[in-house]
């Protein structure tokens, strides 16, 4: 998994690429924890995330929980077809706001 952090207006965009699973989830959680010190609004761009398992999903949910506890939020964009099916069956789509592009997600923070 590779993450790229892009500061953008009101929110920080975290682009996640590759596999988000038990092996890579701790890395994302650590990076997110560091960013949460100075930021509150996040957008996870999942355009290049081609796989997610329950640990990866648990990591994103844990990030959301930390963000909400700090009065922040995480919005998801560009969820691809195969990870989307995992979000569907785990009902994770019910707890996230999911947008189809970064701009509309960023505007929603305004």
């Amino acid at each position: 998994m590779k993450t790229t952090v892009i500061p953008s207006g009101h929110a920080v965009i975290i682009a996640v690429a590759g596999r988000l699973d038990a092996a890579s989830a701790p890395q994302l959680k650590k990076e997110f924890g560091e960013l949460l010190h100075d930021n509150r609004s996040f957008i996870f761009d999942l355009k290049d995330m081609d796989f997610i398992d329950s640990t990866g999903l648990g990591c994103i949910v844990a990030c959301l929980k930390s963000a909400v506890e700090a009065d922040g939020n995480i919005k998801l964009v560009n969820l691809q077809e195969k990870p989307r099916m995992v979000f569907e069956i785990t009902r994770a789509y019910k707890i996230f706001e999911i947008f189809d592009n970064v701009d509309t997600a960023a505007e929603s923070y305004n």
Partner: peptide, 30 residues
């Protein structure tokens, strides 16, 4: 704690019948 709606589950494969997309789930919790 899963919600299987409008899907086909074939062992560890999750299939969307409308698009034919199939996800090979390697996660034994799911």
């Amino acid at each position: 704690d899963l919600e299987i709606r409008h899907k086909i589950i074939y062992r560890n494969h999750l299939i969307d019948p409308e698009t034919g997309f199939s996800v090979d789930i390697v996660d034994n919790f799911l």
